[in-house]
Write a protein that binds this DNA or RNA. Structure first.
Lengths: 227, 227
DNA sequence: CCAATATTCTATCGTCTCATAGAATAACGG
DNA sequence: CCGTTATTCTATGAGACGATAGAATATTGG
């Protein structure tokens, strides 16, 4: 085996992984899976994609070694193969953000820029929590909270936030976090909270980023209901 | 613009970058560019690809925002858009390595496993250099050395190593580094050095990784000859 | 302004990929 | 062991992509 053949084989393998990152749906699935393992059904619903397509994409991801499966009754659960996959996806997003003006345009259309400016970094958040200066809420679906959350955070899924406002202290500032830098749950939570007269900001990143930063992640013991 | 449309647009942009990572040649070009800027001609030669193909791939990379160009006389120089791109490529390689048994098989065919075991990590290397315990040689082509190298390292391109052995101290251990974890220059250098009775090891990673680790990189002032 | 050089642009053909439909498989509940 | 549910496998047509050939562009030097 000579130089060229070696290089070609090597880069062919890298490209195999790279190729699976070339589809919007697959990237969305990876982002969802970064929140914790999920069934095909849940992934299909949360990505608004037919189950058959979802299954096909998941197969591609598995063949590239990015995700793994395990069976639980008639359900099959998918999860990321390891944290390096999360890091890879985030790295891709980071490069995209810096390089593609389009992403800025797209996000500007949806995300209010002022909210972004006020976002709390994870290290700041950590300090604020240590000082008990803030109330932190996790506005993701409950199963994602159960699969892993910031210790001390309250699970208040976005859908429940409106009717559970009383549970939250009135004075302390509230920090909402969700899936990641491009997840809009925390943004909507902040908007709602402010409308109701609370002081609130969003975290700049989400739970997967917290994990990647090496901070402690807590799990709810009783395994979550599916979904 | 609603949730789904926003997400779709966002992930479409990420996928645009991801897609360009799906071709072996493009990944190879990115790896080469991580060593410093190069002309199309140099890239074509070093990747053993026709210029036309190289140009086409470079165009794809530029459209995705991963590389930038500048003109210098009749030559056009390409360079990575920023260090995040290097990090992305390394992240991809890391995930590939962990996940694809094939990469291990491929590398095992070419890289001698024992050499890998003895590789010096960059932080170790840094310590050894501080103590002046080793001689460090950069076995990449000289233009890559000029574009950026470990301070204190000697430029000894692999092709010149055989006839320049006298320049290297006889007692001190020699550490060779090159382009990155999968570059074979340093491996071949170590093999040659040992054959000639020197104590030698390779660095586990290359110059781009040194840069990413945040260590100081030195440049040769007189801009290198092309190539 | 013309020739030479480096590079890109445009167009073509074969190949790969995607979405998706229909059939198949695997585990559970009765 | 049979029906049900969750999921995968197989097959197919439309479209996208890669390698590459030929024409075009931009800069330099005369």
């Amino acid at each position: 085996m000579d130089h060229r053949a070696f290089k070609a084989a090597l880069y062919a393998q890298f490209a195999r992984v790279g190729h699976t990152l070339g589809s919007p749906k697959r990237l969305e699935l990876l982002d969802l899976l970064a929140q914790g393992e999920k069934t095909v059904e849940a992934l299909a619903e949360q990505s608004a994609t037919p189950i058959k397509n979802t299954s096909a994409h998941l197969r591609a991801l598995r063949q590239a070694g990015l995700v793994e499966t395990s069976r639980e009754g008639t359900y099959i659960r998918y999860r990321l193969a390891d944290d390096h996959v999360t890091a890879l996806v985030r790295s891709l997003q980071e490069v995209s953000r810096r390089r593609l003006a389009e992403v800025e345009q797209v996000t500007a259309l949806y995300l209010d820029r002022r909210d972004e400016m006020e976002a709390v970094t994870l290290s700041e958040l950590r300090r604020l929590m240590r000082d008990e200066a803030v109330t932190v809420i996790d506005v993701r679906p409950r199963d994602e909270f159960d699969a892993g959350h910031i210790p001390g955070a309250l699970s208040v899924p976005l859908a429940e936030l409106g009717r559970r406002l009383d549970e939250l202290p009135k004075r302390k500032e509230i920090i909402a976090y969700c899936r990641g830098p491009y997840c809009v749950y925390s943004l909507e939570a902040v908007t709602l909270l402010r409308k109701r007269g609370r002081r609130a900001r969003r975290a700049a990143e989400g739970l997967p980023d917290w994990r990647l930063a090496g901070y402690v992640v807590e799990r709810t013991l009783a395994p979550a209901a599916t979904r």
